[in-house]
Design a protein around this nucleic acid. Structure first.
Lengths: 218, 218
DNA sequence: ATTATAGGCTAATCCAAATTAGCCGTCAAG
DNA sequence: CTTGACGGCTAATTTGGATTAGCCTATAAT
């Protein structure tokens, strides 16, 4: 990794721990192994480092969105994958989402930084909201929409069902950001949550039979 | 309100919008209507202002906890109140919780400040977690425990049920902190959420009958 | 070989913001 | 009526930290 990139990396680490205003240019330089003035060979000033981090995130984010689009286009195939999704697979789905967000180094640091900086600037708030709330809901919502369509799950309102799935994951995630020592507890809760979610929303045989009867009556 | 108190008040407002490090002592003084050096007649330094805010919050918080204890002690009476809770009353419960957290000026500013400062210091993280996650869950959990005991709601796991109730409220709350213009949307979602929660967990007549049969069979 | 560029360093410089010094008016207690 | 504490002000002072100036070396291109 070249110096220019290492600066971004170390700056992100520091910003995510202390917030922009509490990080000194000299701190960043130190971690990179150079002196503060040398930073200015790479970035115009401190703000430019922050902006570059946001820009890089936007880039990664677009790539990721592109990847998701492909999955979206391939919805039929995805639907097949999940057509027979078991409780254990559902747990895996949630656990993977959770652990990816929690442990992916870049995602985690970026989220913590945005948590601190979100009120400085409406645009940062929007990025946070999109990346850690709206987009996961929209992606999961698409998935659950398919599961409902194929009769695995049942609900009158897929969006609310998706919130019921994701909101606990989100709450546990931000809990672990602030109290990492509670990760074990969070994993346990996460699993219990998804089991209960599954038993609440899964279309069981009885219900299917009941619905058939309803059809006959009409 | 005396000057000493007004300083805390204005400081909290500013800290909640910009974070401690981005607020200048002169900003606080300005809003109070005095000059920066005069602040030092009331507080030793900037940090002491922050500490006093935390101390005051702890005081208010203990009072509140005391009040809750009283309710807890009076659990039998509370149980009566909720024994016949309707869907509309459940929605009110959630809406009130949500709107209190969102609109109570002190709570809102304090929460935003802690959001920004939580990673500076583990003790701040703990306060946040306790006040906006653990305590609401524990209080709601107690309530739902009673509702289950009195046969209004049914579940195998009250804690998870409580998370299913509260996590969406929490997620909508922090959404409104960062994008206040989405409050209307959040209120709508909140209501839909609770209706669906109600229909998922309410022990309906059919189920009661089913359970009676189960008893007979045994 | 020469030169230009990239990227590092040390030693200023600059500046904003916290804090201190020291003065003054007011008012309540003696 | 006078004195001392309270709380305000202006004018320094201090300081920490961002940024600039100017120099040096290595390396890559001509």
């Amino acid at each position: 990794m070249d110096t220019r990139q290492r600066i971004l990396d170390e700056a992100l680490t520091l910003f995510s721990e202390k917030g922009y205003a509490n990080v000194f240019v000299a701190d960043i330089a130190n971690r990179v192994g150079i002196k503060a003035p040398s930073l200015y060979k790479h970035y115009k000033n401190k703000q430019a480092i922050f902006d570059a981090i946001i820009a890089e995130m936007n880039k990664r984010f677009l790539e990721q969105a592109g990847a998701l689009q492909i999955n979206g286009a391939d919805a039929a195939a995805d639907a097949d994958i999940y057509k027979t999704i078991s409780e254990e697979q559902l747990i895996d789905l949630g656990r993977n989402l959770f652990l990816y967000f929690l442990h992916d180094d870049y995602t985690r640091r970026f989220r913590k930084m945005l948590t601190i900086e979100q009120f400085h600037d409406a645009s940062l708030a929007k990025i946070y909201q999109k990346q850690y709330v709206d987009d996961p809901l929209s992606y999961q919502g698409m998935l659950f929409g398919m599961l409902v369509a194929s009769g695995i799950l049942q609900t009158e309102n897929v969006e609310i069902m998706t919130i019921h799935f994701y909101a606990p994951i989100y709450m546990l995630l931000v809990m672990c950001d602030r109290e990492p020592e509670r990760e074990q507890e969070a994993m346990k809760t996460l699993e219990d949550h998804i089991r209960q979610f599954n038993s609440l929303y899964r279309r069981d045989e009885k219900t299917i039979r009941k619905n058939r009867n309803k059809h006959k009556e009409q």
